[in-house]
Write a protein that binds this DNA or RNA. Structure first.
Lengths: 198, 198, 198, 198
DNA sequence: CATGAATGAGCATTCATTCAT
DNA sequence: CATGAATGAATGCTCATTCAT
C-alpha cells in the first residue's frame, strides 16, 4: 500500500536525519562518512543514496530541518511573551533550551555558519537570516516602542545576541554539563544586564 | 652554516604555517589536503613531512602559534590600559583587530573550540584557558576594585565576552567586510553597554 | 482476459526492447543502467525484472530480436532479386536501409561482434553466422553460376561485404547524416565496382 | 637523481599503457576497472592516479598513443612505395600488420570510433581523420594521376578501405587466428580487385 | 502484472604517509 | 634539507538484483 510504503520511507528518512545530525555535529561534515551514517541509522549504505541524492544534499536537508525547528521555537517564544524585553528573555531561553536538546546542531552552526565557499553556504545563509530575523524583529519593535536605546545597531545586536547564546550554551554543555538550564539562563541575563561599566 | 640552515628551515616552517592557516581556516581541517598546503607553501609534499611528523601535528603547532599570538596581544592590551573597564575595552579592540588580521584563525577557533573527541582537543582546551584567562583576570580585578557588579559570574562573563567578539567579528568580516574596525568596535561596545532593559 | 493480458505484456516487452536498444547502442552495454531502461520505457524498475531474468538476458533477447530482423530483411532482398549480382546489390541496399532504421543496433554490432569473453558471445556468434550466411550463399551461387571469380574467398568476401556496409553506413550516419540512402548506396557500389587497379 | 626518477616514471606510464590497452580492448572501457589495470601493470591503484588524472584521461592518452603509432606506420608505408596503387597495397598491408600486433586496439577502435556522446569522442574523431587522411591522400593522388576512376568518392573510399581492413582483420584474428598475414592480405586484395560484377 | 524501497558488492577517486634518491 | 614517485586504506557514489506489497 502506498500508505505503508510512504510511512516506511519517511521512517527511513527520519532515521537518517537523526543519525546524520548526531554524527556530523560530533565529528564535522568531512569526517563523517556515509558508511557511518548508514550504520548508525541501521540501514544499508545504498539506502542513504536512495533517499538523498548525495551526502551534500543530505546535509542541506539537515540544515533546513534543524534551523526550521529553531525558528519555530523562536516564533513560539515571541508569541508567548508580551513586551519586547520579555520577548527577548523568552528568545534567550528558547535558544538555550533548543541547544540543550540539539547540542550537536549548535556545534554544527558554529562550524559552518561563517564559512564561505561551501556548497551549502547559500542555503545556510538564508536559514540564518530566517532565525536571526525573528530576534531582529523583536529588537526593532523594542526600539520603536522606546524599550531599547534609540540608536541601537539592531543588525549587530541581534547577531550578537544570537551568537552569545550560541557560544555560552555550547561552552556550558562542553565544560559544565551538570549546570541547569535555569542557572545558565540567569547568569547569562545577568551578564547581559550588568552595567559592565566599560 | 648552521645559522643559515636554521634560518632556511624556519623560513620553510613559517611558509607552511601561513599556507596551512589560510587553507584550513577557509576549508576546514579535513578538507584541506597536505598537497594543497605544500603547493600553497611552494614546497614539495615530502617537505611537509620533513618539517612536521604528521598533518595533525602541523595543525596542533598551528593552534599553539595562533593562540599564542592572540594571548600576547591580549597581554599587551591589558598592559597598555589603566583601569579594568579601560582594559576591557582594550581587550575587545585587541580581539577584533586580531581577528581582522587573522580572520581565518577565528573561523578555525569557532569550528574547533567546542568540538570534543578530536586529537587536538586537549591542546586547544589549554590554549583557550590561556587566552580567556587574561579576560577573566581583568574582570576579576574589576569586580574586586568595585568597577563591575559584585556578583558577576566571571567565568561565564569572560567566555561570553570572548565569544561575542568572535561571533561579531566573523559576522562582520563575512557579511559587511567594508565596515571599519572602529565602527564595529563602537557598535559592539554600545551594544554591550546598552541598558537593554531586559 | 488472457488475450488482453498477453497483449499488455507484449506491449511492455516491446517498450523495453525499444528503450534498451536505443540506450545500449548509444552508450554501450555497461554504461546503460536498468534504471535508464525502465525510465525510458516508462515502467518501474521492478518491471524490467518481471519481464526478463537479468540485464544480460534482456540484452541477449535484444540481439536475437535485432539480428532476426536483419536476417529477415536479407532473405527478402534475395527473394526479390534475380541473378546473384542483382541479389548482392539488393543485399547492400537492405543492409544500409536496415542500419538507417536501426542505427543504434549497428553500433552495437560493431562494438560486440568481435569481442570474445562476454557472456553473450556465443549467442552473437551464431546470430552473425545466420545473417552473414545469407550473403555467403548468394556469393557462392554467383561463383557457381560464373558471375564472380572462381577462386573468390567466399568466407572472407561475405564478411568483408557485410563489414564494409556496416562501417560505411555508420560512418555516414555519424558524419554525414543528411546524405540520402540512395547517394550512399550508389557511391558504395561504385567504390566496390571501381577497378581500383591496385 | 632526476634521470633515475624520470626513467622510473616513464617506465610506470608505459606499463600502465600496455596493461590498459590489453584490458580495455578485451573487455571494453566500462568493464575494465582501474584495479584491474593496476594489478596488470604491477603497481598500486594509487599509482594509476599519480600518473593520470583519471581513467578517462588514461584512455584518451591511450587512443592518442595507439592512433599515433598507426599513423606513423601508414606514413612509412606510403613513403616506401612508388605509385598510388602500390601505396594502397602497402597501406592495406600496414593496417593488417598493425592490427595483428595490436589486435586489442583494433577492437577498441571498432567499439568507440562511431560512438558519439562519450567524453573522448572529439579526441577520437581528430585522430581518426589523421589516420584515414593518409589513405585519402593516396587515393586523391591516384585519381589525379589517372590510376583510379576520376569520379571516385574519395572520402567514402578511404573510410571504406580503412573499415574493411579493420573488419576483415578482426574477423581473421577472432575466427581464423592461425591463418597467416600474407594469406589474409592476398585474399583481401583479391576480394577488392575482384570484378565482382555487381 | 507491476511496483519501488532497500540492499550490498563494486567502482573511481582521494589522500595521509613512506622512502629511495 | 628537500624531493616526488609510489602506496593502499578509506570514501562517495553506482547499480544490478531482491522482495514485500
Amino acid at each position: 500500500m502506498t500508505d505503508g510504503r510512504t510511512r516506511r520511507r519517511d521512517d527511513t528518512k527520519q532515521r537518517l536525519y537523526d543519525a546524520a545530525m548526531e554524527l556530523i555535529a560530533e565529528h564535522g561534515f568531512s569526517s563523517t562518512t556515509v558508511d557511518d551514517i548508514a550504520v548508525a541509522a541501521g540501514v544499508a549504505k545504498g539506502t542513504v543514496y536512495y533517499n538523498f541524492p548525495s551526502k551534500n544534499a543530505l546535509f542541506e536537508a539537515l540544515l533546513r530541518h534543524g534551523v526550521g525547528l529553531l525558528t519555530t521555537d523562536f516564533r513560539a517564544a515571541v508569541a508567548g511573551a508580551g513586551t519586547p524585553p520579555e520577548q527577548a528573555v523568552a528568545l534567550i531561553r528558547a535558544e538555550l533550551a533548543y541547544i540543550q536538546r540539539h547540542r550537536s546542531f549548535a556545534q554544527l552552526l558554529l562550524s559552518e555558519m561563517w564559512r564561505t565557499n561551501r556548497e551549502w553556504h547559500q542555503t545556510l545563509h538564508l536559514l540564518r537570516d530566517e532565525a536571526v530575523g525573528v530576534i531582529a524583529e523583536v529588537l526593532e519593535r523594542g526600539v520603536a516602542e522606546g524599550h531599547f536605546d534609540a540608536d541601537l545597531d539592531v543588525r549587530m545586536a541581534s547577531a550578537a545576541l544570537f551568537g552569545v547564546c550560541l557560544v555560552v550554551a555550547v561552552d556550558w554543555l562542553v565544560f559544565e554539563p551538570d549546570r541547569s538550564l535555569e542557572s545558565v539562563q540567569d547568569s547569562l541575563i545577568a551578564v547581559i544586564r550588568a552595567r559592565v561599566g566599560i
